Amino acid sequence: MQRLLLILGCLFLVAAIAWPWLSRLPLGRLPGDIRIVRDGFSFYFPITTCILISLLVSLVLWLLRR
């Protein structure tokens, strides 16, 4: 448990430091993300982004368990 918390803390630290560069990635604006904008209403669901992030997290966890 301590190892997992240490790794997660380091990952969050790296993400925080790299945020200016990470914000330039097209995550959240990928083809397949649902966006509906009407008068007085907007709906946004980044389904493709969620799937991509889920695959990436699954890959990282799989690599850590090996």
Rank of each mutant, 00 (worst) to 15 (best):
F41M: 10
G40H: 12
P26Y: 08
F45M: 09
Q2T: 14
A16Q: 11
I34P: 01
V37E: 15
W19A: 14
L4E: 00
L63W: 13
L61Q: 07
L30I: 04
S58K: 04
G32N: 05
L30P: 01
G9R: 03
G9I: 03
A18P: 00
L59A: 15
L64M: 12
L61I: 13
I36L: 15
M1N: 12
P31C: 02
P20I: 03
I36E: 08
W21S: 09
L30K: 02
L5I: 11
A16T: 13
L56P: 00
D39N: 09
F45T: 00
V14Y: 06
L30W: 03
L56Y: 04
S42F: 11
V14D: 06
R29K: 12
L56Q: 07
L25I: 05
G9H: 02
G9M: 03
T49D: 07
S23F: 06
M1T: 15
L27D: 03
W62G: 07
L64A: 12
Q2Y: 07
L8T: 12
Q2L: 13
W21P: 01
W62H: 11
R3S: 15
A15L: 14
T49V: 07
R3D: 14
L4T: 00
D39H: 08
L30Y: 02
L64V: 09
V57C: 13
F45H: 10
L27V: 13
C10H: 01
S58M: 11
P31F: 01
I51D: 00
L22K: 03
R65L: 12
M1C: 10
A16V: 05
R29T: 10
Y44C: 02
L52V: 15
P20R: 03
I47E: 12
P31I: 01
F45I: 00
L59Y: 10
G28Q: 10
S42T: 14
W19E: 13
F41C: 00
R38V: 07
L63I: 14
R66G: 15
D39G: 04
L63C: 11
I36W: 13
S54M: 11
R29F: 10
L6W: 07
A18W: 04
L30C: 05
A16D: 06
G28S: 09
R66F: 11
I17F: 12
F45E: 05
R66S: 05
D39L: 13
L52S: 11
P31N: 08
W21N: 04
L59H: 04
A15G: 04
R65Q: 11
L63F: 11
A18C: 11
F12G: 14
R66C: 06
P26F: 09
L5M: 13
Q2R: 14
R65C: 05
V60C: 14
I47Y: 13
R3E: 14
I7D: 07
P31A: 09
T49I: 07
F41T: 06
R3Y: 05
F12Q: 09
F41E: 09
S58V: 04
